[in-house]
Structure formats: C-alpha cells, structure tokens
C-alpha cells in the first residue's frame, strides 16, 4: 500500500477538544464519553464526530474512538499534501500511534484514494493496510504523475480493484 506519513509535528502541538457534553467516572474506571458533536484539533489534524470515547491510562489519553455518520478526519502529511478520511468509526490508538478506520471508509489524497470497509493506518511508519479478515474488497485509485493533479479519463487511470490485501 502507498506510504503515507502524518505530519510528525502535530503530535507535539496542543490538543483542543470541544463537545456538547462530557460524562465519565472520577476514577477513570470507564472511558470518558463526549457527545453532542465533538471536534478535535491538534496542529494540522482536525477530526469531527457525533460521539467520542476517550480512554486513559494513569491519567493520560491512550485511545480515542470516534463514531459518526460519518466521522471525519483530515490532516496534512509531512510532504505538505492533505489527507482526508471518512468512516463510520475511527479508532485512534494513541499509545501505538495507529488509526483503524472501519465502515464505508474513504481516504482521499491528491495522489489517489482508497475505499473499503477496513483500513489500518500506522502514523509512525506511514504504513496503510486495508481489507483482509473478511473485510470485503478494497478499491484503490492512483492518479498518474502526468499533469500533476490533472485527471485523465477513467479508463486510462490506474484504477485497480484488488482483492483484499492481507490485513
């Protein structure tokens, strides 16, 4: 799969979270639930969802689960190009810097797009793995280099439907 590297400086930026309501337990025994529309901003990363669950470990965020119809995430990559993704569910494991998109996943970049039912994106290595484990087919669309950004008619574009890759 294409190597996509998230903006590394984002992770050192302040994280701003807004929501309509927040519920949790005082002893962190259950995840904190944010509802009523949630937005999360950290550097170039911007996420929107109907609902979010934030899990903590010894007081620090370990996981953020966003759900919505759809949940949205966009970010600038290290090379400055934008990446935007929508999915029914975006599961960001902060500890191991991995994001799992599930449910009508559609990831868009200037170089192409990736659609499927399940996509795993490792923010530290930039590795994207899609499909697998009975998660249906993956549709990848890579635009040719000629005329940067210029779209050529569908039959010329490298429009490949490939069977699910090993997950």
């Amino acid at each position: 799969s294409p190597v996509v590297d998230a903006r590394k400086s984002d992770r050192s930026k302040a994280m701003e979270i807004e929501s309509g309501m927040q519920q949790g337990t005082l002893d962190d025994s259950t995840p904190t639930v944010l509802s009523g529309g949630v937005t999360i901003d950290q550097g170039t990363l911007h996420a929107e969802a109907a609902r979010a669950e934030i899990s903590t470990r010894s007081g620090n965020i370990s996981r953020v689960l966003l759900t919505g119809s759809p949940a949205r995430l966009r970010q600038e990559l290290d090379d400055g190009t934008p990446m935007s993704a929508v999915a029914s569910r975006i599961d960001y494991n902060v500890s191991n810097e991995t994001v799992v998109f599930t449910g009508n996943v559609d990831i868009q970049q200037p170089r192409g797009s990736l659609a499927g039912e399940r996509v795993v994106y490792n923010m530290s290595t930039g590795q994207v793995t899609s499909g697998g484990q009975g998660n249906g087919r993956v549709k990848m669309r890579i635009l040719p280099k000629t005329g940067a950004g210029a779209e050529t008619p569908p039959d010329d574009a490298a429009d490949a439907e490939n069977p699910a890759e090993g997950g």
């Binding site: 302040a14 807004e18 309509g20 927040q22 519920q23 949790g24 944010l34």
Partner: peptide, 26 residues
C-alpha cells in the same frame, strides 16, 4: 471547562452538561 457540573459521589459518575472544551499541551 464546561457548564453545568453534576457529580454523584456514590457512583463517582460526573457530567459536564454543555459547552465542554479541553486543551492539552503535550
């Protein structure tokens, strides 16, 4: 920050009822 804090000391459940904002600096 939030508006409308409600805490049950028995169950340790809390709710911030609206306009919740949080800012975390790594």
């Amino acid at each position: 920050r939030g508006v409308g804090l409600e805490v049950s000391l028995a169950s340790k459940q809390y709710t911030l009822q609206s306009e919740v904002t949080s800012r975390y600096v790594p």
